[in-house]
Computed example of a mutant assay.
Amino acid sequence: MDISVNTESQKLLTAHRGIPSQAPENTLSGIRLAAQLGARWIELDTQLSKDRTPVVMHDETLDRTTSGSGLLREKTLDELRMLDTGEWYKPEYSGELFPVLEEVLEECKKLDLTLNLELKLYPACDPAALVERVIELIQENEFPLEKLLLSSFSRDALIRCRELMPQLRRGFISEEADFGLNGVLKEIDPYSIHLDHRVLTPEIARDIKGAGTVLAIWTMNEPEKAESFFNMGVDNIITDMIDQF
């Protein structure tokens, strides 16, 4: 299969964590609604439970988006599945189960979504362990690689991805303008660079595109600014409000 870089701007949009402006983030309901509203790319976060099951959630702790509390990594899958991940958002989402990555992969296949899966790593987490378990699931699920991108702030995680499954697309995320492009290109050989839209300049965009790398920005929620970013060379805008673009 051909999953090579296309350096021509395709003006793509990615639904960030689903569509958190209308549904609880990182949930199956959010994925379905984003697809219903026209999303073709979706960005979600994955971490490991205490018993090494890849689950889908952004935060290090459970307090903000679930009925539980404490560190996610200290909970088993059975404990996580007892939590409600929707009622905090709106009563009509009460009963939303904590999603596991396996379910998300199946849902993305069913909805024909391209998945930007962020490997979410906090200081006490093991990058290699997360990468290994995620890749195991991808292979078991036979998820189409042309519909998948693994992204992360963690260079160690993306280097491990490259070692284990070099044909899998990798995206390096940074909130800093001076992230060391040459080092990232050498160590990770990324498909894409994902920058905080607030630090992007025409010069940085030119350097990234000149390296033959896809350029994405996050998290940009102002539709009136989209065209200026696309004109700068951005290929993909990651947004909470895909329905507004």
Rank of each mutant, 00 (worst) to 15 (best):
G30T: 00
G171H: 14
A129Q: 05
L111K: 06
F143Y: 09
D235Y: 10
F245W: 14
V234S: 02
L164R: 11
S69A: 12
I135A: 03
K147D: 13
T76W: 01
G212I: 10
D235A: 04
P54H: 05
P20G: 12
V134H: 00
E43Y: 06
E227M: 10
H16L: 01
T239P: 00
Q139N: 15
Q244D: 10
L121I: 04
V184P: 00
E187Q: 13
A35N: 09
D126N: 14
E103N: 08
E132Q: 15
Q244M: 11
S152W: 02
A23T: 08
D243F: 09
L111P: 00
T219I: 10
A15S: 02
L48A: 02
H197I: 05
Y191E: 08
N231W: 07
L137S: 08
H194F: 12
L71R: 05
S29I: 10
L195K: 05
D196S: 11
A128C: 07
F230V: 09
L119D: 01
E103L: 03
M82G: 14
P91F: 08
M241N: 15
L130K: 03
C108L: 04
L148G: 03
E107M: 05
A211R: 06
L48T: 00
D178K: 11
V100G: 10
D45P: 00
L12T: 01
C161E: 13
G18L: 00
L80Y: 09
N221S: 09
E107Q: 07
L137D: 12
L111R: 07
T213S: 07
E187C: 13
E87W: 11
I193F: 06
L195V: 03
E132K: 15
L77N: 05
E103R: 05
E92N: 09
T61V: 13
K209F: 11
M241Q: 15
Y191L: 08
G86Y: 05
I193H: 11
R81Q: 14
L150Q: 07
M82K: 15
R206D: 13
P54K: 02
A23K: 09
T85Y: 01
D178C: 03
L168E: 14
A226C: 11
I138S: 05
G183Y: 15
D178G: 06
L149T: 06
M82H: 15
N141G: 15
A23W: 04
K147C: 08
